[in-house]
Amino acid sequence: MEANPAEPHGAAVVADGFGLKGPRGWAFRDVGFRAEPGSLVAIEGPSGSGRTCLLLALTGRMKPHEGHAEVAGFRLPRKMAAVRRISALGPVPGVSDLDPAFTVAEHLRERALLQRRYDGSVRALLRPPAERAAATKARIEEALEAAGLDLDALPKAGRTSVRDLERLEALRLSVALALIGRPRLLALDDADLKLPDADRAEAWALLRSIADAGTTVLAVCSEAPEDALRISTTPRAAEAGPTAEDDTADTDDTAAADADAPADDTAAADADAHADDTDADTAEEDTNEEGTADALAETGRA
């Protein structure tokens, strides 16, 4: 279903008493904040504080255990499938990794084909092949421009292998792949990991430009920029940024689970376009493995 042109493209994100429990205790708990469409939201905190779990829960890929959240009006955990369809993952280690053996062009072509196959309308699929190819090329170019990735500047242009990319280039590629689907919510993990200061500043400038263009951005980081809405998964939350309201992201209990620890229940993979009408609360047979497979399905290599 296409978004109403009168509505903002970005997704508003609201959390209230949001929490997720894993085998070793609470990954995060009592998270509350409000982000308007087109916000840059930074989830900060030390490694092991539940940042990745919060990111995956807010994108409908892990099932929370207390409180609730809403993404573009879709309430979690009930509408997890709907949230997955309007959100996209940039780099999330172990979930949406780039394939080092692929070239940049191969990654882009694969993602565009998957996007057209699973998300394209019947009318679009019936268009002449040349028309479909032109539309795919335009979508790829649009995503590359938004991600600031110039293929001609790479050592072998589009034939450059992922293993030969610098970290900032790999980040831009991951973001471009996510933007091919024109999501309302873009989420990425470890946005500033292993980046020198200059590259870190470029990475945040990139994410800020995507948010300014209308897409809501959730980014896990070790240290958030001052102009972001700052959410913390540590016991004492940092003050929210200038776009926040009075909500803060306090956590009552120390997060006892590692950020990569699986939750007790996660969202099962859902290929049915109408699955958002089902109640995720009744999905007692959901498993951690199924939730991971659902996130990996975005790459087509689950």
Rank of each mutant, 00 (worst) to 15 (best):
D227Q: 10
A244N: 04
D227S: 10
D246K: 07
T234I: 05
A224D: 08
A224E: 04
D247E: 15
A224P: 08
I231C: 10
D246T: 14
E226T: 12
V220Q: 01
D246R: 07
A238V: 13
T248N: 05
A237K: 02
A228S: 01
E223D: 14
S232V: 10
T243D: 09
D227F: 03
A244P: 04
P235S: 04
E226S: 03
V220E: 02
T234F: 11
E226H: 02
I231H: 10
P242Y: 09
V220Y: 04
P235H: 00
D250T: 13
S232G: 05
I231L: 06
T248D: 11
P242N: 03
E245H: 06
R236H: 15
G241W: 04
I231S: 00
A249H: 03
A244I: 01
E245V: 14
D250Q: 15
G241M: 00
A224F: 01
S222E: 12
P235A: 11
E245S: 14
V220I: 12
I231M: 05
D246V: 10
E223M: 07
E239I: 00
D250P: 13
L229W: 06
A237Y: 03
E245A: 13
A238D: 05
A249N: 11
A240C: 08
G241Y: 02
D247F: 12
T248L: 09
R236M: 07
T243L: 14
A244E: 07
T248H: 14
E226L: 03
R230K: 10
A238W: 14
E245T: 15
T248C: 15
A238L: 03
R236G: 10
T243H: 15
E245G: 15
D227K: 00
R236E: 11
